[in-house]
């Protein structure tokens, strides 16, 4: 679905990203992990074609990503950026309909299919009862659900999310991730997601990629990536690891720094 080969990005003479080789297969959910400033957001911007890479290349469905027109690309890749939706004066339904933009030409606005897709998305995400509400009236969690519904209306094959759960409480975090997981299993959607929470990443992702200072430390199934050595290397903290009692994936426990003995 998406391949990056020897991807690099430079800014102000410094490499933000270097030698990234990454392959996301159709239908899998890949998590990107790393400390602050490790290049996660830069990687996302390069992989979605928002920024042009300074070395290497990104291929989407076998074609170089810069050969797609913006609308063609938007029909394949949907992106949910880090910034939450602002307090704009649109209704929930209007925002979700904006997801249909890549399918509409300048001369004809909305077709019957656009309405059908939006209706089904609104029902699936549980937003149907509040579709006429103004976005500004909604809570942060509800607004994020609207943002995800908008990307669903885009009917993408690949969904890229940059920390979609950062501003949410645990209930809404789980709700969003469950929604994504359901969408992945039902429609064969491919998901690339940046997550801060290692435990959630281990629970939901099929594969993980761990970044440090713009380079890839390791990648693979959660068991192979979330190990004491790798976490120590990437984050500089020493974790305790246990296996999740029901999901059997590694879970990280943090501990306060020990006082040094005199």
């Amino acid at each position: 679905m998406l391949q990056a080969a020897r991807l690099g990005k430079k800014a102000g003479g410094r490499w933000l990203l270097q030698e990234i080789d990454l392959c996301v297969e159709k239908g899998e959910m890949v998590g990107v992990l790393g400390a602050n400033g490790s290049g996660k957001s830069t990687l996302i911007r390069c992989l979605t074609g928002e920024w042009k890479a300074d070395s290497g290349e990104v291929r989407l469905k076998g074609e170089r990503i810069d050969t797609y027109s913006p609308k063609e690309r938007a029909r394949i890749v949907a992106v949910l950026a880090q910034e939450p939706l602002g307090e704009i004066e649109f209704t929930v339904e209007e925002v979700v309909k904006m997801g249909r933009y890549p399918y509409q030409s300048r001369w004809s606005w909305a077709s019957g299919r656009d309405f059908d897709v939006c209706d089904s998305v609104l029902r699936q995400t549980g937003l149907w009862p509040m579709k006429q509400r103004q976005l500004a009236e909604l809570s942060g969690g509800e607004r994020q659900r609207v943002a995800i519904a908008r990307t669903m209306a885009q009917e993408p094959e690949l969904l890229v999310l940059d920390e979609p759960t950062t501003f949410l409480d645990i209930r809404h975090q789980l709700a969003i991730l469950d929604l994504l997981k359901k969408w992945q299993s039902e429609c064969g959607l491919t998901i690339l997601i940046v997550l801060h929470d290692l435990n959630l990443a281990a629970q939901y992702c099929d594969r993980l990629v761990l970044l440090k200072e713009g380079r890839m430390v390791t990648s693979g199934v959660p068991k192979a990536v979330i190990t004491r050595e790798r976490i120590e290397e990437a984050y500089g903290v020493t974790p305790l690891l246990m296996t999740h009692p029901t999901l059997h994936v590694p879970q990280v426990f943090l501990q306060p720094a020990k006082e040094e003995k005199k």
């Binding site: 928002e50 609308k71 063609e72 949907a78 992106v79 910034e83 939706l85 704009i88 649109f90 904006m98």
Partner: peptide
């Protein structure tokens, strides 16, 4: 339609095509 999308922010608009 483009103006509407710009309200979501420039990045979001670009990602929508």
């Amino acid at each position: 339609a483009d103006l509407n999308l710009m309200a979501l922010g420039e990045r979001a608009a670009a990602h929508l095509g």
